[in-house]
Design a binder for these strands. Structure first.
Lengths: 147, 147
DNA sequence: AGTGAAACAGTGCTGGC
DNA sequence: GCCAGCACTGTTTCACT
């Protein structure tokens, strides 16, 4: 994967504003619109850009509770855990990690009652540790050029 | 905040494809383009849609290591921790949470050496617990209508 | 790889319901 | 709150470098 400085500038701009028009993008990187478009297509095809997404505010959408649930899933229960728990709409992130707590879930709920239900559900598969999120200070920081 | 079914469909579609044109969006929700555009503008103005972002693959961008670092920050060190650590480009997510480990960081690094350096850095502010991420099974699941 | 011009598609505005 | 028509802007293709 060799990306030049121009590719990185394009990635930077599109991570900040995924709806920027290619003509605007072209202006910012001092290139013609077709050349810029072709670079973006190439980045998409290489899999560097995997998609574009609108970023929404869960608070305003009726999900004021955010929590991190760590689950020490018993190995025998792992398949069922993956099928049933990771499919829940409340589960925003799910990472399989090293260490005693082998799963880390970021969940969003409309109420504490809903969170309680989810944690109770998770308890079937192993011990859980739940932390409520006070505030998120960094969220999905754009990946930037190492140079 | 009262959103009707149409608003939710628009949110759903834009979370999946943030670059979808308003004409295409209009087709999908069976509305005229101007009406659809106006609804999107309204969602943006209400703060429901906070932005749009290109989603990139950190692996392909030279960041193969992903880890969750829990930090039990001593209260006296908190201001410096916030200023110095949360500003690092490696820190993708940073949440202030309840429980013993009061901060949860998701970091991405180009090498274990870099991760080691970051964790050493974090140790200045309190005890840390680091878990390497094997795999992310859910990432930024779109928020969907409760109904 | 990048450019410039022309055809085409999408956007934004205005007026009307 | 939605639609139709029009001017404007952005996108795509193609011949050329």
């Amino acid at each position: 994967m060799d990306l030049d400085e121009l590719d990185w500038r394009i990635l930077d701009l599109l991570q900040q504003d995924g709806r920027m028009t290619f003509t605007e993008l072209a202006r910012r990187v001092n290139l013609s619109a077709p050349a810029t478009t072709e670079r973006v297509r190439r980045l998409e095809q290489l899999g560097v850009i995997t998609g574009y997404a609108a970023v929404v505010d869960p608070q305003l959408l009726g999900l004021p509770i955010q929590a991190i649930v760590r689950v020490r899933v018993r190995s025998l229960d792992s398949p069922r855990f993956r099928e049933r728990l990771l499919a829940l709409p409340s589960v925003c992130d799910a990472d399989h990690v090293t260490g005693d707590d082998c799963w880390l879930l970021r969940v969003r709920c409309k109420s504490m009652a809903e969170l309680e239900q989810l944690v109770d559900n998770a308890q079937q598969y192993g011990e859980t540790t739940t932390s409520l999120v006070f505030s998120s200070h960094v969220r999905n920081r754009p990946v930037s050029s190492p140079g």
